[in-house]
Design a protein around this nucleic acid. Sequence first.
DNA 1: AACATCGGTTCATATTATGAACCGAGATGG
DNA 2: CCATCTCGGTTCATAATATGAACCGATGTT
Lengths: 258, 258
Amino acid sequence: MSTVGKAISLLEHFTLKEPEIGLSDIARKSGLDKATARRLLVALAERRLIEQEPLSRRYRLGAGLSRLARMRDAHLPFVRVAAPFVRELALETGETVHLSEFSAGALLTVHVELSAKANRVSVDVGQILPLHGTASGIAFLAFSRPETVEACFGKPLTAFTPHTMTSRDKVMEAVRLAAERGYSRSAQGYEEGVHSVAAPILGSDGFPLGTLAVASPVSRIDDAIADSQGQAACEAGRKISAHLTGEQWHASVPLRQR
Amino acid sequence: MSTVGKAISLLEHFTLKEPEIGLSDIARKSGLDKATARRLLVALAERRLIEQEPLSRRYRLGAGLSRLARMRDAHLPFVRVAAPFVRELALETGETVHLSEFSAGALLTVHVELSAKANRVSVDVGQILPLHGTASGIAFLAFSRPETVEACFGKPLTAFTPHTMTSRDKVMEAVRLAAERGYSRSAQGYEEGVHSVAAPILGSDGFPLGTLAVASPVSRIDDAIADSQGQAACEAGRKISAHLTGEQWHASVPLRQR
DNA sequence: AACATCGGTTCATATTATGAACCGAGATGG
DNA sequence: CCATCTCGGTTCATAATATGAACCGATGTT
């Protein structure tokens, strides 16, 4: 791994549950030597991506990250534009809805609206979703360039539950079905007990930027409910796409046009 | 500079005005070889700190930054806690109020509430304020550890306007005055035509995390107004400190107690 | 047709990163 | 009270990694 990769991997050890980490600890977690870890942390701290608590001498994520994230959000207002529609869809369906953005070969969860119900699916912002094992991933692939789809099969497909589709044929069949009806459907492919439907959010080039997914406990779902969730997700996805690209939104927008 | 430092410096070339940059361009701006710049960008992209627009092949800040920033913000809700008080102070004074956080030897602007007046001071989130040349910096130094103050004089003091204090004695005198009355006051030390008063926001260890500043056009300010702004900023700063540290807020909190 | 510039790649070379061993300071505990 | 951990941090010979001049093919410009 490159030195830069190692440095960034250090950042990725800071989580919601463990927002501050000591030197020896992070060296152990990352598998790096203590001296190496420290040099990297110091380099990161010089650029404000890491801060050190002066008293405990523990490290945490730095203010520079907030600064850079603000730059990005100002320019690429994906979450800002989509958030109201995500909320609307969550209210309409009564289920947890999450928004994902494609990045580096996977989908990154960037926004979540939790269901108001007691028995609900919980999703964390920041969670990384594989393309082959989630409704979001299938919806994304269904509208992606052939190269993107192909790249997904470059590595063996990990099974997350006994229900995960791990053969290329099964995945492609799901993709074909999703392309046909506009949304994908997946039950327990990534987490036990979770049913999801997902629709793509298309950019100005007609290819997906990310996805929108409705996640419910499997016990609450039948075909009719799934289909109505799917329709609603599609419509919300189209609205978001339209707002992002500045184009007029047509109720009967064709699914694929090239 | 370390390889990691170079990689992060690449990130810092993306600004609000130039959110996407081509390879040759960023290599030129950063003074790195094109091959080097590309390797670093690829390493950053693998970890999602950078994205490449597939069509134009230009680079931009990646979704991983949003993810990391959210982790940080969830844990360190500085802005979230302070924002209501910043707004309140802006309404009370009728002037632009900005909030800064100390990081790597300078103050980083993390939140701004603009004045409703037509003739107002404009401040950008993300702006970096030097300790010696701004009201915020002086207020920060006035409550900092002696080592922190000393470190500020390690390098020559840059003059930003003809009014910038560049001698150690002048700065220390301003610091002494600020420590005495609880807030700092500075006119045109960083930008021409701008008058500021600032108060510190103290962490649980009694030392400042950042500052709160009221910025006005010099033409609107006299001693009485400046003092009332100063008092208001102090009080707002104390309220924010109290909320951050979970401590009870006392109207007559001593300025320095060690 | 000639020229410039773009993003991207190659590979011998030189700089840089690495980590075992080592500090001193606090905890821990028998 | 001494022995023993573990902590954050440092050193320096060694090993790995980063570097950049030269080069590609593609895409404008003049």
